[in-house]
């Protein structure tokens, strides 16, 4: 493999990996906070993509301009899901772990059905926007601009999540993560923190969805394939670890890109899954998970 080609594959892996990382960051945040895996996470991303598509179709507004709008919408949706479903799931007495898994699973199926109801089953795509079909040439390595923009926005969103963790709210979040019962004693409203955590997690995946819509098809099942990668990313990086999500996301992007280039494109995820199982054999709590 010539050097230029290696660089090209590595760049592609990095661009995709940063998106995986942001999708996983939202999942990881929610898990770290309250021990809940959101199995509807991919569907939240799908909804963000459809939101971009619908607004773009209606107004012709550029997806990049819609970023703040959709992020706020998803933030609200995440909070609503917490208040409406997750708070109830956390309060059950029996089989709590199983109830959480299947409540979010049922929600995922519901959202998929709702998307099909509104937009039909066919693939849609957002075309002709500002960055579409443009690319950057870095000494022979071609980087499509929609993907470059997506990965830059993902990095910025990561930085944003880190900034949030330094605010008063972030400290309350961290305290709730450490001991969810003790924080009530010092006047932190745990329910509000949990709801905000869901808002942030959904907002993060929403941002990833908006940027993805710039170069990826939208369909009712688009969330499912990204979700599996997101669970793998979170488990590989370690549940609850933001740094883990970032490192694991990029690692997975690279493994996927090189498996496709060196072996067989249709088996690119097998390479990812093999690396994941290998790492977890030696580090059962992931790369950065607390042992």
């Amino acid at each position: 493999m010539p050097v230029a080609e290696i660089l090209q594959v590595a760049a592609g892996g990095l661009l995709m990996g940063l998106i995986y990382a942001l999708v996983a960051a939202g999942l990881s945040l929610i898990f770290g906070l309250m021990d809940v895996v959101n199995f509807a996470h991919g569907e939240l991303m799908m909804l963000a993509m459809y939101a971009v598509f619908a607004i773009w179709q209606l107004t012709g507004a550029d997806p990049l301009l819609l970023l703040p709008v959709v992020a706020v919408l998803l933030f609200g949706l995440g909070m609503a899901i917490y208040r409406g479903l997750i708070a109830r799931a956390l309060s059950v007495q029996f089989n709590r772990g199983m109830v959480q898994i299947f409540v979010t699973f049922g929600l995922a199926i519901f959202i998929r059905g709702a998307a099909q109801f509104v937009w039909g089953g066919e693939f849609r795509s957002v075309t002709g926007h500002w960055l579409a079909d443009r690319s950057l040439n870095l000494g022979g390595v071609f980087l499509p601009l929609p993907q470059v923009a997506a990965s830059l926005v993902c990095l910025a969103a990561f930085a944003g999540l880190l900034m949030v963790s330094r605010t008063e709210f972030g400290k309350a979040l961290e305290a709730t993560r450490e001991d969810r019962d003790a924080v009530a004693l010092i006047g932190i409203d745990r329910d509000r923190i949990f709801a905000m955590g869901w808002g942030l997690g959904a907002g993060a995946v929403g941002i990833a969805g908006v940027m993805l819509a710039g170069f990826y098809y939208v369909g009712p099942n688009v969330g499912a394939s990204f979700a599996v990668i997101a669970y793998v990313t979170v488990a590989l990086g370690g549940f609850g670890s933001m740094l883990g999500a970032l490192v694991a996301g990029v690692l997975i992007g690279e493994v996927e890109a090189f498996t496709a280039a060196l072996w067989e494109p249709s088996l690119k995820q097998v390479g990812v899954f093999a690396v994941y199982l290998l790492v977890l054999t030696f580090r059962p709590r992931g790369l950065f998970g607390k042992m």
């Binding site: 199926i109 059905g113 099909q116 089953g121």
Partner: peptide, 10 residues
């Protein structure tokens, strides 16, 4: 084909 069945099931 409108996904009503999925919504009910979910």
């Amino acid at each position: 084909g409108r996904g009503v069945d999925l919504m009910l099931y979910g």
